[in-house]
Design a binder for these strands. Structure first.
Lengths: 264, 264
DNA sequence: GGATAGCGTTCAGTTGACTGAACGGTGCTG
DNA sequence: CAGCACCGTTCAGTCAACTGAACGCTATCC
């Protein structure tokens, strides 16, 4: 799991309009971020920085809503979160369309394809099509990954305007590293982003997993407010060929275009 | 409950220790339950039954926590819910073990297998192993299904004590119907549950999808507090044989036993 | 075009939620 | 066995979050 630091910790000057809700969300975050996923009332009180008595009340309410579950004196995330997450995904027509397209595509139907969403400096995987039994991914739906480490992350970032990119990744920014080939600095990342913009798709060469390569494209934003979506194919470097790659990019782009324009 | 002079420690409704949290959860539920998944402030205020001004504050806090997202004047569920749901699933060792077992099993490795959780009168699908490209399920992870319509639902219900079952499904209860073969009444369902208890596994014969059959078993509850888990295999009725079925049940039971007893 | 109905926002008063210290219970430690 | 440290719970006082009516605004209707 990648460490994600709170992006914009609102200073104490700006109070929340419903503090109890903000705190409850912080409790959920703390549970999600903890190593074991099991924390006691005191743990949470310390972690989130609110008095025990207040935390106790929050936990009672969260438990009643099934957003958390109590196991003796420990708390874990609740199953209601799975339902809500599923409800979010179920409302995304793009996911349904994604499956349908992958099944009937000529090359992609036999590959491992994923659709992901940009979330700050991470991507979140929304769905996975597994047409290639030899390539089983360890990552699951909902998992996060730093953008600099995967093709789909780079494809999504490349669509942002240059000013935002510079802000997110200063030249000297140190990027998370997972393999010897991982990009190291903001400058390296931005050099690649220029390439990606020119060629219209992104590439990953063993930057997150040795032996594995990825291709990815971004989906033009549907409507005015939708999240940024991206598509990626994963292949084994050992069997990957240039020709195969260009065909996959072609189909990825076709799917991306179809997702971006519901009617066509 | 007799003395009306006591200062009423608990009113009939049993007030929540943190109402704002309970209300926020109700807002999320309302969004998840709505047909389109997009509601305005006024919609939510009416739906949940709280004043607009209060709702406005709740929504602001929820939006700040990214539990909901604002699109103009409409609100939808937020992507943070996908992360939290994934964190819940990622913490379930059973899911990881489920994948591992399916891959190395002799028969199941070539079938479509799922693991699901009981949630009231529905089951929620937690993970899906697809070893059989010919059978692609339309349901996704996190989707809900009435227990009476699927083998895994019946397997899970069958483990409850008879009193609870009678309460959930009176003889004359009308069950949801999806195909001509769907069970219609509580009495029909309970007759099947008796069979399931005797033979130790559940069966579904085109009750949710014509042309499709399912086998399922329940997992003995791990520890004292875990949720009720169930396993199911889906097959095409056209190619299904009795012999194949008994082998699949055997492997399902083995996996169930392994999930219920972490060390063995 | 004027009127209406509905939307989201604002604001001051009052109720009820949050605090923090003290309490009883439990599992280590010396 | 006594001592300690930590846990989760309780309770009364205080402060702030919630209410509800009034506001400005935009679409809709006659």
């Amino acid at each position: 799991m990648a460490d994600s630091r709170t992006p914009a910790p609102d200073k104490s000057g700006a109070a929340s309009p419903a503090p109890a809700v903000t705190r409850a969300a912080a409790v959920l975050d703390a549970l999600a971020a903890s190593a074991t996923g099991r924390l006691t009332l005191s743990d949470l009180s310390r972690e989130v920085g609110i008095p025990k008595s207040s935390t106790s009340n929050l936990l009672l309410a969260l438990e009643e809503a099934r957003l958390i579950t109590r196991h003796g004196s420990e708390f874990t995330l609740g199953r209601k979160l799975v339902e809500l997450g599923a409800a979010y995904l179920g409302r995304m027509d793009e996911v349904q369309e994604f499956y349908r397209y992958c099944e009937q595509a000529s090359v992609l139907s036999r590959e491992t394809v994923r659709i992901a969403m940009l979330d700050g400096t991470n991507v979140i995987y929304l769905a996975r099509y597994e047409g290639h039994p030899a390539v089983r991914l360890t990552s699951n739906i909902g998992d996060k990954m730093p953008v600099s480490l995967c093709a789909v992350g780079k494809a999504l970032i490349a669509r942002l305007n240059w000013h935002d990119i510079d802000e997110m990744f200063p030249d000297t920014a140190e990027l998370p590293v997972m393999t010897p080939k991982s990009l190291r600095t903001g400058a390296e990342l931005k050099a690649q982003l220029k390439e990606i913009r020119e060629q219209g798709f992104a590439f990953e060469d063993e930057e997150s997993t040795t032996g594995v390569v990825c291709l990815a494209v971004s989906v033009p934003t549907r409507g005015a407010h939708g999240p940024s979506l991206g598509l990626s194919v994963t292949a084994l470097k050992a069997t990957y060929t240039q020709e195969q790659g260009s065909q996959m990019v072609k189909e990825l782009k076709e799917l991306a275009h179809s997702l971006g324009n519901p009617m066509g």
